[in-house]
């Protein structure tokens, strides 16, 4: 499985309150929430993002609230993968549980810039930066989690 798209780049400690502000959490309609995704730090994101695009950030992405609306609204906005140096742990498990691909990779998080065209091979964890002609090795998942991802989320894996 591969992802291919244009990068939207952010910094350290992107928290779930800016990914999807709580003032919108009176709705659990993820398509509706996607219209407000990232708006407190990047008001133009929802208008700019295209299906398949990739989000790249630095350390501790998704810190704060447990709201699954955060990874779900990112997924609903069309993002095909999030690359970061590290993920906050609830975001990490939420992303796996709902089937939003995420990859930890220090080098990619440093070198990829906003607007770069990037391809990710999920089987090998190799991230290719087409714009800069560079490749980075991302961390692959343990088998236990690959089984959840391959089942298309936690609930299917439990059936």
């Amino acid at each position: 499985m591969k992802a291919h798209g244009t990068v939207h780049k952010y910094g350290d400690n992107v928290d779930t309150d800016v990914i999807i502000p709580a003032r919108y959490l009176n709705s659990a309609d993820m398509q509706e929430l996607a219209k407000h995704c990232m708006e407190d730090i990047d008001i133009e994101f929802a208008g700019r993002v295209k299906p398949g695009d990739i989000m790249v950030a630095k350390a501790n992405f998704g810190c704060g609230s447990s709201r699954e609306h955060a990874p779900a609204s990112i997924k609903a906005s069309g993002i095909s993968c999030v690359i970061a140096k590290s993920f906050a742990r609830i975001f990490y498990r939420n992303a796996i549980n709902i089937g939003l691909p995420i990859i930890e990779c220090d080098e990619a998080a440093e070198k990829i810039e906003n607007g770069d065209e990037v391809e990710i091979d999920f089987d090998t964890g190799v991230i290719t930066n087409i714009t800069r002609n560079e490749t980075y090795q991302g961390q692959s998942f343990p088998e236990f989690l690959i089984n959840i991802i391959n089942s298309n989320g936690l609930l299917n894996s439990l059936k």
């Binding site: 447990s66 498990r93 709902i98 936690l154 609930l155 439990l158």
Partner: peptide, 18 residues
Amino acid sequence: TGVGSTDMCAGMAKGKDW
């Protein structure tokens, strides 16, 4: 520990989580 809604769903149905 804090988890997401899918974990809560799995927990409600099965009484287990990873």
